[in-house]
Design a protein around this nucleic acid. Sequence first.
DNA 1: GACTCTATCTCGGTA
DNA 2: TACCGAGGTAGAGTC
Lengths: 219, 219
Amino acid sequence: MRLVIARCTVDYNGRLSAHLPEAVRLIMVKADGCVAIHADGGAYKPLNWMNAPNTLVDNGDHWVVTNPKAEQLVINLLEIIHEAGHELGDDPGLQKDGVEAHLQELLAATPGSIELGLTLVRREYPTAIGPIDLVCRDASGQVVAIEVKRRGEIDGVEQLARYIERLHLDSSLGAVRGVFVAQVVKPQARVLAEARGFTWVEVNYDDLRGLQTDELRLF
Amino acid sequence: MRLVIARCTVDYNGRLSAHLPEAVRLIMVKADGCVAIHADGGAYKPLNWMNAPNTLVDNGDHWVVTNPKAEQLVINLLEIIHEAGHELGDDPGLQKDGVEAHLQELLAATPGSIELGLTLVRREYPTAIGPIDLVCRDASGQVVAIEVKRRGEIDGVEQLARYIERLHLDSSLGAVRGVFVAQVVKPQARVLAEARGFTWVEVNYDDLRGLQTDELRLF
DNA sequence: GACTCTATCTCGGTA
DNA sequence: TACCGAGGTAGAGTC
């Protein structure tokens, strides 16, 4: 990784055009070739950047970074204040816990936590417009399509609506009911879900993990 | 800006849990307090981060960064390889050209480029669920609601559908037709638009800019 | 503060 | 490769 602190101007021409007036910034060039230009604030996002793969041509007072789509980043170096290179080596990568996939797994293991009497038919039930998170049957035998989200927003309700529209074309399933499940369901999503005739349920991730542990203890 | 190259492990607990095994990484602390941990590859996004505002407690061998929502980033420093601080000063900020707003302006100036005979009623037409990009009338006098996107994907079609549903409640407008406009309309968005009874149109940004220049020349 | 929408979104999976 | 969906989305704007 090459770190350069420099007074510079930067121009990007590609999906849009962008220009950075003269100022002191950090220019980061990673081992994979990607370039990022950071100011001393404004969260983690760089002001300007070029992902790998690309080719960097160092013309001394200005660098030209070009990617295969012919997008171009031009960095004009007016004054180099500091420069350093470091070998970091490979990174083992980030391990995550608590993303939507985990929530879906937990709910598939304990569908009764969504609604009493619910039994799982299938996870990732395939349709022509994409898989439905969970398909279940309720106590009365009716098919229930379930959309799982970490954060329940309006988009998720629309997604569920599309799936159910699709399932209604499959006459073998009979009438299909929709349930929208999330850790938090936003007010507007609640309204839309109800307007579409769906029920919505908020679930707690830690409780679910506890439930699953309890179930495992029974075996 | 403080730059530290160190062998470290990192744990984040907040909206999800994430863990980084031991490796050499760049730790960047900006003047506004935000912290980012970078590997030597993988585009501009850091492996882990904590935005401002937050409080950083330096316990020597480990840092604890906490934000107001009680989300926490813990950095265990096993070996500090390099450390440096730099004063960058304020940044004048990025100037952009070619984002959706510009596309919308150009289309508002030349609605005929979407469909022959179209005239603008209003840009950012207000509704209870957000503004409609463009509302026009066609040659026959029918109201046309237009959603503009740089990249036309399925979400944009749903957005248009919600707006039109809303406009239909306003009986004074009569029947409302939907048109989905983007520089590129993705296949799934085309299908959904057609299924919803909307037409879709692809437009070219540079051509539009040319058209507008031509119109200006007439005055 | 809640809600909206954009983004050079990024990133990962999959067909 | 293109397409699709999730994201600790972030960030800006509006109400």
